[in-house]
C-alpha cells in the first residue's frame, strides 16, 4: 500500500470538511473493497476518512411501508435483522450470501452500492426494489443512481446516509456465485411491487440493469413460465475467463425463473 493519512471524524459535517481540505481523500466504511484495492496499489488516496465512528449511520428500522437501513449497516446485521427478515426476506437472504462471514462482519450496504461493482449483490436489491438513496445533500432514486461500471450518481464528497427499500408484495434474489470469489456471475432480483414488477440483473453487464422484457411478461403473469422462454441478448454482456456473454445471457433467464418461483 502507498502511504496515506488516516482520519476518523465523529460527524458527517466533520467528514465532509475533512474531505474538502484533504486533496485526494477517500471515504472508508467496511474497507472490504477499498483495502484490497489499496493492497494491490490500484488507488493512491492522500487520506482515508473513516466513516465508522460516525454515530447513527447503521440503524435498521421499518417505517411507513418501507425498510430504512443506514449506509453503515453491516451485511451480517441486515442478514440477521428480525425486521428485515420479516418485511423483506429476499433482502436478508441476499445479504447472507455476500462473500463470507468475515466479510459480512465488516462490509457495509453504503460501501457496496457506492462502489457499484458490476458483480456486487446489493445493487440488484436497490434497483429491483426501487429503493431511494439518501445522501448528505439529496435523495436519489435507484433508477438514477447506478450510472456505469464502478460509477454512480454520487458527487465528490457526497456521503450516502441511508437507503429506503419499499416493502414489496413478494420478492426473491437468486445468484449464481462465481465459485472462487462468491461475487455474482449472474444475480437476478425480482420484485412484485405496488408500482409494478421489477427485474434487476447484476453480474452480467458493466453495471446492474433492469430487464424490461421480463418485467412486462411478469406483469401479465407472475409465474416462472412467463420468463422461461425469454432470451436475453448477449450483445452487451460481459465475457471473461469465468464465462462468455452467451453463458451469462442464458444464466439470466435461469436465475430469473428460479427467483420468480422462490418469490414470497
Amino acid at each position: 500500500m502507498y502511504q496515506f493519512n488516516y482520519l476518523r471524524p465523529k460527524s458527517l459535517d466533520e467528514a465532509r470538511k475533512l474531505f474538502e481540505s484533504n486533496g485526494d481523500a477517500k471515504f472508508i466504511a467496511g474497507g472490504q473493497t477499498l483495502i484490497p484495492t489499496l493492497k494491490q496499489r490500484l488507488a493512491q488516496p492522500t487520506a482515508l476518512i473513516d466513516l465508522g465512528a460516525i454515530g447513527g449511520l447503521a440503524g435498521i428500522k421499518v417505517a411507513g411501508g418501507a425498510v430504512v437501513i443506514g449506509a453503515g449497516a453491516k451485511h451480517n446485521d441486515v442478514a440477521t435483522s428480525a425486521d428485515v427478515l420479516k418485511a423483506i426476506p429476499a433482502l436478508a437472504h441476499l445479504a447472507s450470501h455476500i462473500g463470507d462471514p468475515a466479510v459480512r462482519h465488516l462490509g457495509t450496504l453504503g460501501g457496496s452500492i457506492a462502489n457499484n461493482d458490476p458483480a456486487a449483490d446489493y445493487p440488484a436489491a436497490v434497483l429491483g426494489l426501487g429503493a431511494e438513496i439518501k445522501t448528505t445533500s439529496r435523495t436519489i432514486k435507484a433508477d438514477d443512481f447506478f450510472t456505469g461500471m464502478f460509477e454512480t450518481a454520487l458527487e465528490d464528497g457526497e456521503i450516502i446516509t441511508e437507503i429506503t427499500f419499499p416493502v414489496p408484495e413478494k420478492a426473491a434474489y437468486m445468484k449464481f456465485p462465481n465459485p472462487a470469489s462468491r461475487y455474482a456471475m449472474v444475480g437476478v432480483f425480482v420484485a412484485k411491487t405496488k408500482g409494478g414488477v421489477r427485474v434487476a440483473v447484476t453480474g452480467a453487464a458493466s453495471s446492474v440493469f433492469r430487464e424490461r422484457t421480463m418485467e412486462a411478461a411478469l406483469a401479465k403473469s407472475f409465474t416462472p413460465d412467463a420468463v422461461a422462454n425469454i432470451k436475453v441478448a448477449a450483445g452487451n454482456l460481459n465475457s471473461d475467463l469465468h464465462g462468455t456473454a452467451e453463458y451469462r445471457a442464458h444464466l439470466v433467464t435461469v436465475m430469473a425463473k428460479r427467483a420468480v418461483a422462490a418469490a414470497h
Binding site: I35, P36, P101
Partner: peptide
C-alpha cells in the same frame, strides 16, 4: 494471501470474526 480470500488471518474484533489483513490497525483503535 494478498487478496483477502484465504482467511488464515481471521481474528475476533469485538467478538466477531474478521480478516485482520483487511483492516487497518488504526481502525481497531
Amino acid at each position: 494471501c494478498d487478496t483477502s480470500q484465504c482467511g488464515a488471518c481471521v481474528v475476533h474484533l469485538n467478538g466477531k470474526a474478521v480478516k485482520s489483513c483487511t483492516l487497518l490497525a488504526l481502525q481497531a483503535e
